[in-house]
Design a protein around this nucleic acid. Sequence first.
DNA 1: ACCGCTAATACTCAGATTGAGTATAATGGA
DNA 2: TCCATTATACTCAATCTGAGTATTAGCGGT
Lengths: 326, 326
Amino acid sequence: MPSSQSDRSSAATDVEGLALFAELSAVIIAASVDGPLVLVRPGVPADTLPAGPLQSGHRTLEAGLRAWVSQQTDLHLGYVEQLYTFGDADRIDMPGRGSRALSIAYLALVRALRASARSGARWQDVYTYLPWEDWRDGRPAALDGIEAYLKAWAAKSPAETGALREKRAALAFGLGTDSWSDELVLDRYELLYETGFVREARQDGEPPPPCPVVDHPMGLDHRRILATALGRLRGKIKYRPVIFELMPESFTLLDLQRTVEGLSGVKLHKQNFRRLVETQGLVEETGEFQTETGGRPARLVRFRREVLLERPSLGLRMSGARRPSL
Amino acid sequence: MPSSQSDRSSAATDVEGLALFAELSAVIIAASVDGPLVLVRPGVPADTLPAGPLQSGHRTLEAGLRAWVSQQTDLHLGYVEQLYTFGDADRIDMPGRGSRALSIAYLALVRALRASARSGARWQDVYTYLPWEDWRDGRPAALDGIEAYLKAWAAKSPAETGALREKRAALAFGLGTDSWSDELVLDRYELLYETGFVREARQDGEPPPPCPVVDHPMGLDHRRILATALGRLRGKIKYRPVIFELMPESFTLLDLQRTVEGLSGVKLHKQNFRRLVETQGLVEETGEFQTETGGRPARLVRFRREVLLERPSLGLRMSGARRPSL
DNA sequence: ACCGCTAATACTCAGATTGAGTATAATGGA
DNA sequence: TCCATTATACTCAATCTGAGTATTAGCGGT
């Protein structure tokens, strides 16, 4: 029986007796030419992320996660980072009084794209689940419905809170302005959850929004976890060279740019992007060329691993993030 | 009995039967004129952070944390954010085979400084526990010993790994260069842990480093948690206006600067700091003045809360972080 | 009333960084 | 050979940054 090891205050209620269950879940991201992919286990009511319970054989949480992933997918995880621990009492319907399911979510980046047959896991476009996050081809169509829906939601409440709601929505979705903050993924998701726009937020029988909703179903709170992961990753690539965890050994600068664009969901200014990569010294030439470019052949470069031991904070600050022509 | 709710692969070992115990712990930070303070429960072998077990009455993790803190300290938490979940099997000596203690750590910022009598909790200078992190009065004395110790540690291993170790240490502590990265708190701690410099990393009987070690004892992995919190906070104040969670209703620009300097552990260029705060529109005048400045009276300002609803990413980018005269 | 001390506030300026171009160089295919 | 296409090089103004200098307004003492 576990008991408090350092608590000296008087706990009013049950110090013992909460049956805990911890699940390790992983948002595994890979890059494709069309954008970021996430590994899911396709399921009948909804897709889910690879996950498994924490076991006594796991010396560390990360080791446990790696064990589950290799058991379920044949994939070797490179970069792994802890994302967030979810533990609301209602995150799983009726887990039973006195028991609680925690979910410790991790973000992992992989190079390979071999979907494992062993488990039936499959790579899915990240934006299948978060279609309003992709601005690479201009304003996402899903935003029309969302914008109207949020306006109605704001109008539905008294003036005071209505104005506040309006502001929150405007901030998260850049309404009214011409600025889109790529990192606010979680803020946007939570707004859509709060308003009942995404399906997992609605009770049985509650009507869907009057506009086409394109949120491919995900189980439990997995869409929230995915949103957390995407937001974190979009932030991280700006100050740490994690993007290279997704790239093959050698690649062209355009490959790199496409990968960054896919993740951050916006188009970048090509010349400035190269300038940034070059001046930061993030890559070095391999001496080889990629000829199937459709135009002049491109130098193949590789990540300069030494930068990890030179300056502590180096990433792609995304200068020249430009709005796709409104 | 909890059981996996979404697992379809064959778990090799015990899917059930791991007795879990989750502790909610809090790094509660407040500002004083001399620098940041952390709330601790002074203890005999070592100080510990306020903490308590997750209970079934806690609807959310954050609610549970707030409940424990108000029970133990009379403090009202304002800003709260989840930090990290620690769960290595060996983080507590021998919790028993088949049982595991998780610690879900939170960072909280408070304005008030009333240490609660109810629990005997006390405010302590953050740098009591991490003395090598404070560069406000020039290079911290503790670094002399650390530098020598790390050099010896690197030399102790074969050339190959030795060089790597040297680089890692140089990167984290800015050895050789004149740059100190305030955010690398956790990297530095982990290096000191790995080398056995901090006392909690040493087995019984293992000799302490040959230099004076000034790491005031902290229980369990609480120093690691504190390091995580400080690093996160140092990063966050640069792009989010969280610093104002530590400030009183009205304050002078110098008060604000001192608070930022205390947290980030470096001195800033005064004129540029003000320029930044002003151009970002982070504060507004109250019309009143602070006269006990020792010189010309200073305007009292307050945080412009509206900025939270204007631009999404606003903080004190710490331009003009200057090295204290080496 | 004046002096000197201290800190607040205002203004300056060169160098670096950014955002947004234009210009030129190699390919493959019609 | 011309053309479409992409890579790569170079330019330039606007802005941002780092580091100053200059001026202002209190206080305490004489």
